[in-house]
Design a binder for these strands. Structure first.
Lengths: 230, 230
DNA sequence: CGCCAGGTTGAAGAGAATCAAGTGATGTGG
DNA sequence: CCACATCACTTGATTCTCTTCAACCTGGCG
């Protein structure tokens, strides 16, 4: 099962706190901050690229609003979505100096951008920052490992797992408002849009979910869904 | 493509150096070492469990000889192999305090075991140790992400990717001596043993590989294989 | 109002799984 | 050293899941 709230920072001591304060009027933050941490909120239009594969990974990002997907392209045009990042999630941390994923806005999104080297030097002095970077890396690893497990399941199980993951992370009133398209979902699950659509229809016919609009999914029997996912 | 030598420590300053010296006669190591780093080489028989899922992750391991696999079991009995660890590779680093994978010896294996808390306290003082732990985590993440990409490919591509990965990591003279069974390979690739076998047969019939014995694979046209994997 | 992108549904086909029967190695006891 | 048992692997026939290709809805929006 995909980990709930996999990307959210710990509840206390946010990595971006100081950067976030850059948003506030100058008088409300400590003098040193503006030099130490250059964090800037930037807006991206739907489907805009935030960074590309193979670009240098010199920033870390936090979703303020909207949704972001990370992608990898295979040479023949197939696309693999690695993860979806929701408000509060941090992304852009890579294992090397280069991005292996690209990042794109799923819908119009506002993102906080923090310089990586700044963060690195900060981490060198501040234990708490280092700890949070480690936690972030851990969550990415956890997610990737869960994603591996997801991809060996049947189409049914994948779709159900996806719905449960999103329900955990979005938790709107008694249903999920999916920000992403069927194509995004399909590329995340390693399926085709047709298959995703069919699985949803079948689940709806079985009355385990309801699909009032194509993006809105209501989980009517979460117990049952939970048992489906192996 | 799966990263070459994904798990090997950097060439200098091995994380396990001091622990490894425990193997040597007492007079050849510094006095403080035995207290600081408790590393012990332990042998595991073929298919023996090194640790299980959900067990506390309080050690880090390094393969001295043999091969180790990490596994996750699905409730219906399916099994997913997360990775294979060869001599020189380090494993057992998890995102939390509990193992989410189990680890088993693929063949008789000798493994160096180091206490995690010892390592943690060492890392707190020694920058280099901390850096190496980070590198280790990075490689695990990289591998998991590559594994995700692997699992959305066709059976052909998966098998070829696997052969190329192993050829990179094992590099025996002009061919690969696979330590693992077809079942292990199948569970790593999310396929059945029959499919793996068939793909190998087809590659052999196409003269891109040779299979003198079931475990020995000779890559006769690596260029061509490289182009197959998308 | 009609267009168009996103989504659904249907029919046909491909690819991998399953079921079942071989074949080949490895090891053991006589 | 050989007969036999066992395990790992291969091969074949069939089934089933998912993809592909195509047509058809549906809901925004100029």
């Amino acid at each position: 099962m995909l980990t709930e709230a996999a990307y959210q920072d710990g509840s206390s001591g946010h990595l971006f706190d100081r950067a976030a304060r850059m948003d506030l009027p100058a008088r409300s933050r400590a003098v040193g901050d503006s030099i130490e941490l250059l964090g800037a909120p930037i807006s991206f239009a739907r489907n805009a690229e935030i960074y590309g594969e193979k670009e240098p990974a010199d920033s870390l990002y936090k979703v303020l609003s909207g949704t972001v997907r990370s992608c990898r392209a295979l040479i023949d045009g197939r696309r693999q979505v690695g993860a979806f990042y929701l408000p509060g999630d941090t992304f852009g941390l890579e294992s090397g100096d280069e991005h292996v994923f690209s990042a794109e806005a799923v819908v119009n999104a506002k993102v906080l951008v923090v310089d990586r080297s700044t963060l690195a030097s900060l981490a060198a002095r501040d234990k708490e920052v280092a700890r949070q970077l480690w936690a972030l890396m851990s969550r990415e690893l956890q997610h990737a490992q869960d994603h591996v497990l997801l991809l060996v399941k049947t189409a049914h199980e994948r779709v159900v797992s996806f719905l449960l993951e999103m329900a955990e992370r979005i938790r709107s009133s008694n249903g999920v408002e999916l920000p992403m398209s069927r194509q995004d979902i399909a590329d995340y699950l390693g399926l085709t849009i047709e298959t995703v659509s069919r699985m949803l229809t079948q689940l709806e016919n079985a009355s385990v979910i309801a699909v009032p609009t194509s993006k809105r999914i209501v989980l009517r029997d979460r117990e049952f869904l939970q048992r489906l996912v192996a």
